[in-house]
């Protein structure tokens, strides 16, 4: 699957970062960016319509970690990238099998992460 065909679920509780990143994701060529700001919405959004891929901020203020939710999506075969201010290597060492991208996000880093998460490369190349 290519990003241009993807409906992406983007969970980010920081509004400003969420808006900018959503723009970046759209610039990267994702067909649909469904932005949610909390886990509850993310769950319901995912219930309503399963996305093709997901970018989830790990620490959601007031609700805790999005890891479990992300793993649920992954269990359904959906590529998931977790965003975190923590050191990417540490996080990946701590949570084996998950793909992390370190904040602040850039198009290149996001593309690289989705590559590692199993999304076909190249589709979002012009966004960098």
């Amino acid at each position: 699957m290519r990003p241009s065909d993807c409906a992406l679920l983007y969970l980010e509780d920081e509004i400003i970062v969420a808006l900018d990143t959503a723009q970046t994701l759209e610039d990267m060529g994702f067909a649909e960016v469904r932005l949610v700001h909390n886990l509850r919405r993310a769950r319901s959004e995912a219930e309503a319509k399963l996305p093709d891929c997901a970018l989830l901020d790990v620490n959601i203020a007031g609700e805790g970690l999005s890891i479990e939710f992300g793993q649920g999506l992954m269990a359904r075969g959906i590529p998931v990238v977790f965003a975190s201010g923590y050191n990417r290597h540490e996080m990946e060492a701590e949570h084996a099998g998950l793909v992390f991208v370190e904040k602040p996000l850039s198009a290149a880093a996001i593309a690289d992460a989705f590559d590692r998460a199993g999304l076909a490369p190249g589709a979002h190349g012009q966004g960098g």
Binding site: E14, I16, V17, L19, T24, N59, G85, K103, P104, L105
Partner: peptide, 18 residues
Amino acid sequence: LQHRVKNMLSNVLALVNR
């Protein structure tokens, strides 16, 4: 602290990008 600094940088970068 790193986490917070990065989040802050993310916010600044997001604002500049905006």
